[in-house]
Structures are given as C-alpha cells and as structure tokens.
C-alpha cells in the first residue's frame, strides 16, 4: 500500500520528466545572401574592387560563431555549439536553422565573424567545426575565419592569385545588429536575412590594391582585411 502511495506522489514528477519543452521554443532561420556590391555573387564572375582590380573567386567560405540573441529585457540567449560555416551553395544563398530558440521578444542579434575560442584541431567536433572541411590551417593555428581563393589579371596581363585566408584572434570581429523594433520570435519558423558583401573585404577603411598585395595569409596585411570585414561586410536586411 505504501508503495502505491509513493508511486502516486511520484506521478506528476514522472509526467514532467519527459517534457523538456515546457518552455515554448521556435526555430530561427538565418539566411546569408552573398553579394558583390549590389550584384548577386557568382563563382567565376568578374567583379571590380574599389582599387579598380578586376577579379573573380573560385571559393568563398565564412565562419560565424557564438550567435546570441538579446531579449527585450536585455537578457542574452546563447545558441549552444554555435559554429557555422557559410558559403554560397544555394545560388548565392546559404541558410541555417537554429532550433529550440525560446519564443520571446528580442531586440538584437550578435555573433562573431570568425571562430571563438578554438585554438587547435585537437578538440571534439562541435557545430560546423570539422578539421576536414578545408578551413583548418594546421595543428596549432586552428581554423581560417574567412577563405577566399580567386584570381585577377594584373596590369601586365599576367594571371595572379587573390588568396585571402584570415584567422587569428585579432581578426575575430564581433557583429551586433539591433532590430528597428523588437521582434517576436514564435510559431514554427522565423527568419532573419543578412547580406555578405565581398567588396567590403577590400575597402573601408583600407582600400586594397591587388597590384600591390593580393596574398593575405597570416601576414600583417591580413589584419587589414580583418579591419575591413569588421564593419559593413555583414549587413542585416530588415
């Protein structure tokens, strides 16, 4: 009899134990639209940078990490295991879905361009961090944040490379986007769209002239690209 009684007390406990969605959640889709200025980006297509160099890319990949959403009361919701590799796969678009986002009113979204806190490749595979995805550097230097492989024809008519492989903590650039007014994320799915502007990697504040320098990998000049993509490279479109 006593057993039955104790079972009875346990009942509500059992019932709730399996319900992890007491708090209502929703899905947030982040869409990234690759652009070159006002044009839709395409591999192999020729674009002109601010310095007047005509160039094309065969590969463009960008890591963002540590996505956080700011609720209207200022509290932050951090997306777990938040490492996302973005590339133009669906035409010039890329879309990723963040599940289990608390249904709430939010006023801002923030994340980093780059990979937060992963210095080497020894760790477990979390999110999109995968040593075999062509973004890993080597054992001790971890992941490239932005990778652009392309080429341009120089003044003398020779093929030259445009090689932009940027990493290192100094080039980890926080992005904060405040919504014009609070957005209520609820229901099945919600969506935010961003532009990624290729040309912004080569201008503002530093106009990059490929005739002078077109190879950015771990050198001091790589940090100029970092300063360029810190602002204006990612734009929230509302």
């Amino acid at each position: 009899m006593k057993i039955i009684k104790s079972l009875f007390y346990l009942l509500p406990f059992i019932f709730f134990a399996c319900q992890d969605d007491i708090e209502e959640t929703t899905t947030l889709e982040l869409e990234f639209i690759h652009k070159a200025g006002n044009e839709d980006f395409e591999y192999g297509k020729i674009y002109q940078n601010n310095a007047g160099n005509e160039f094309s890319l065969r590969l463009w990949r960008t890591y963002i990490s540590d996505v956080k959403l700011m609720k209207s009361d200022g509290e932050l919701y951090a997306v777990p295991d938040s490492y996302h590799l973005i590339e133009p796969v669906d035409g010039n678009k890329f879309s990723l879905k963040l599940n289990q986002i608390p249904s709430e009113k939010y006023k801002a979204i923030q994340f980093y361009v780059g990979v937060v806190g992963e210095e080497n490749l020894s760790g477990e595979i979390v999110g999109d961090l995968d040593p075999s995805n062509n973004m890993a550097w080597n054992w001790t230097t971890g992941y490239k944040f932005i990778r652009m492989d392309g080429e341009f024809q120089d003044e003398l008519g020779n093929r030259r490379g445009v090689v932009v492989h940027i990493g290192k903590e100094i080039n980890l650039k926080p992005q904060v986007f405040n919504f014009q007014q609070d957005i209520n994320f609820s229901g099945q799915i919600n969506k935010l769209s961003f532009d990624l502007d290729l040309l912004e990697a080569f201008q503002n504040p530093h106009t990059i002239d490929f005739e002078v320098l077109s190879d950015f990998q771990f050198n001091d000049e790589a940090n100029l690209i970092g300063e360029n993509y810190a602002e204006g490279f990612v734009k929230l479109i509302e």
Binding site: L121, G123, E124, I125, D130, P131, S132, N133, W139
Partner: peptide, 11 residues
C-alpha cells in the same frame, strides 16, 4: 563494424 579514426581527421 567499428571504424575508428582520430577526431582531427574530421567527421
């Protein structure tokens, strides 16, 4: 069949 490979090879 258990395949094993180091994490640094990738998934």
């Amino acid at each position: 069949f258990e395949l094993s490979a180091p994490a640094y090879f990738g998934s």
